[in-house]
Each structure stands twice: as structure tokens, then as C-alpha cells.
Design a protein around this nucleic acid. Structure first.
Lengths: 200, 200
DNA sequence: TAGAAAAGTTTCCTATAAGAAACATTAGGC
DNA sequence: GCCTAATGTTTCTTATAGGAAACTTTTCTA
């Protein structure tokens, strides 16, 4: 009942299953109850081409795959699956309260959560936002991707480009494009505590 | 300073920028400080091919793109960008405490967060896990993807396949493969409250 | 500044993807 | 059972992706 051992030596060699792509696409099409004709039309490709792709009798171009992902609403990362040993398949990682991995900067004090799982796609962490004056707000933080925040305790102001500053208190949550400039300032006397989950 | 208006009529037509792919790849390569030769070798493709891809003089196959994403550690979803109007570019979405969208089942009571942003990739929600006996644990929940949970209040037991049951209390967090069977039971007298963020 | 080496681009050729149409297979109606 | 319609597969052809090598441009060094 112990975690699956993570073999560090094992290379992320070639694609796990050469038939993966076709299988995924066929599964998605049947899920929608579409025929080759219908799915092909939706994606703008011929039914013969689609047949060959689903049966892995061809190595489709990226364009074709992209059109299919759109038409079939496929989850793109699944198509790139990079094999078993190094991903999180069948694994879990716990971090008990206050046991996260500390990472401090001038204005933020982060506690990284679940850092054992290195190949996960979301990055959860808890930040203690030091109480300071709103006027102290400095530069925008920007990083490609999406971010979700949940206020655990305290009160703070979230600044984002294109929007008015937003006053938040415990229990409030925000989801935003993290490529858009953003930053927080605690407006309570004590420090504010926020849970973030970052993607990408 | 109002949110960018979301034009529902606007179709998610063709790829936004036909040169997007090449730009992303060149950017990633230069980020690593690699020459065409080096990057090509790492991905197992010729430098001439890579040159043409970066300059968008060719429509690469899916295989080639996948090899490049691995070698250059590219974030795959970025390659599929489905244009501007329907994605979350430059947007944010707030849900104040207790204002989520309710969604109840027999054993769980969910409150979906930030549901205005329909094209986001992570799905945050708060669940109230009703107090009941551990023996009442029923069937595994399974859904492709990854999941992060953070215990807001109460105490509960997390069951997951391949592992021993795990006792959790406020402030604890777990990250796991949600394709692996999982389920929760509140072990405190009162209901337990959990924040989940689901991906995929 | 010249010369050499390295990085990037273009040309040429072969292998193959993608679509059209022919062919095969399955499902339903009588 | 047979006939028909619909779905899926296999040719066949054309356009093009991908690699090798020739060519061009840039960078480094003396």
C-alpha cells in the first residue's frame, strides 16, 4: 500500500503507446455519437483520413490534430502523454498543515504544497501576504497561464490590469489569466493568508 | 475598467495566428539557449526541418511537434490556443464567500466557484462533506485528470486506491491522480468543508 | 579587416499524408 | 433470407513533410 516507486533512472523515452492518438480520437468521436463523416465534417477533414488516423495507419499533421481537438473537444494534454513512470498516474501526495516547503521573497512568504509530486500540472501554494500600505504596491506580476486564489484568512486587495482593484476577505475566490498583471496587498492589520493554485 | 466584453456570436474560427506554432517553438528553443542543431538533436529531428518549422514554412506532423514539446519542455496547451474571444486572456472572475453555484448530490454538496469564466482549465469548487459513518463509504470516484484538495474545516478521511486511508484536518492538502479511485468521508461531528481544484 | 567556424536557410529528393473514389462491411426493412 | 442504405476501409493520386547537403549569413578570432 506504499506509493508506487518512482524510478528516476527510467528515461521518458519515446511515446508510450504508438496507438494512443488514434484510440483517443476514436473514443472521443464515439463519445459524441458521431460517424466518421460527421466528425470529419466538423473538423474539416475527409472521412478516409479520419479512418486512417483512428486506426493509426498514418501520422497526422499537427494541423489536422488541432482541428480534431477543437471539433471533438479533446483535452489536449492527454494527447501528449509522456509515459507512465514519471507522471502522477496512480499517485498521491499529502502536505499537512504548516508542513509545506517554505519559499520567501520580499513581499510574499510562500509555502509550496505537495512538492513530492514533481510532474504534476497544477502548483498549489499558500502565501502569507504581509500587512503593508496599499500605496506600497509595486510592479505587476506576470506569468503565462491561469491562476485560482482562495482567501483563507485576513483581508486584502487584489490588483489586476484591465480591472478595478478588488477587496477580498476570507472565503472569497478569484480565477484569472495570470499573464495579465496582478498583485496583492493585505488590508487587514494582521497578515492575510491565501491559497493559490497556478497552472502552466 | 470593465471586463472585456465576451462576444458570444464570434466563432472560434480557424487558428488565430498561423505563425503561432513556429514562434512558440523558436521562443522555447532560444529560451534554452540552443542552436537549431542542438534542439534538433534533442528532439531527434534535422536542423533544416526545425528551421522550416520555426519559420512556418511547413506544417509539421503531430509526431514532430510532440517530440519538440518534450525536448523543449513546451506547455502543450499553448500550442493549441483556440483564439482570443472565448478564452480567459486578460480576464478575471470573482466569487464571494458562499456565492458559488450550488450543485448537490446524495453524499456531496458542491459549490462551484468562478463559473462565469467558462473556458478556464481548472475547476475550483467547495464541497461540504456530510458527516456519516466511515462504513458508509460507497464506490470510488474516478475521472481523468489531476486533483488538488485543501481542507478548510472539519476532519475527514480520504480514501484512495493503492494507498491506506488518510486522516485529514483543516489546513491539510493532497494532490492526486483523479483517475485513481478516490472518495471522502467526514469523521468530525459536524460536516467537513473542502476546497477542490480539478484539472482536465 | 580577413579568414574561419558556427548558425541558420534553401534546395533537392524521397517518403508519406490527405482527399476522392472505389470497395467492403454492417445494420435495418420487407 | 435478400436488397438497400449507411458506415467504415482500402486503393490511388497529388501535394507536401522531412532529411541531406549545398548555400548564405552571422559571429568569433587573429
Amino acid at each position: 500500500m506504499e506509493p508506487v516507486s518512482q524510478n528516476k533512472d527510467e528515461e521518458i523515452t519515446e511515446a508510450t503507446d504508438p496507438d494512443h492518438l488514434g484510440k483517443m480520437i476514436r473514443e472521443a468521436r464515439l463519445q459524441k455519437g458521431w460517424t466518421l463523416e460527421e466528425a470529419g465534417k466538423a473538423a474539416g477533414i475527409g472521412r478516409s483520413t479520419l479512418s486512417k488516423i483512428e486506426n493509426n495507419q498514418t501520422r497526422p499533421s499537427f494541423d489536422i490534430v488541432r482541428r480534431l481537438t477543437k471539433a471533438l473537444e479533446l483535452k489536449t494534454p492527454q494527447l501528449f502523454v509522456q509515459s507512465g513512470p514519471s507522471d502522477i498516474s496512480g499517485r498521491r501526495d499529502v502536505t499537512f498543515a504548516g508542513q509545506g516547503e517554505p519559499q520567501d521573497t520580499a513581499t510574499y512568504s510562500h509555502e509550496l504544497l505537495c512538492t513530492e509530486l514533481t510532474s504534476k500540472r497544477m502548483f498549489p501554494y499558500i502565501s502569507t501576504i504581509k500587512a503593508r500600505d496599499v500605496s506600497e504596491f509595486e510592479a505587476w506580476i506576470r506569468h503565462r497561464g491561469e491562476e485560482f486564489m482562495y482567501v483563507i484568512s485576513g483581508e486584502l486587495t487584489l490588483f489586476t490590469e484591465h480591472y478595478r482593484p478588488l477587496a477580498l476577505k476570507a472565503g472569497d475566490s478569484v480565477y484569472y489569466d495570470s499573464g495579465m498583471g496582478h498583485g496583492c496587498v493585505s488590508t487587514s492589520k494582521e497578515n492575510a493568508k491565501v491559497l493559490w493554485v497556478s497552472l502552466e
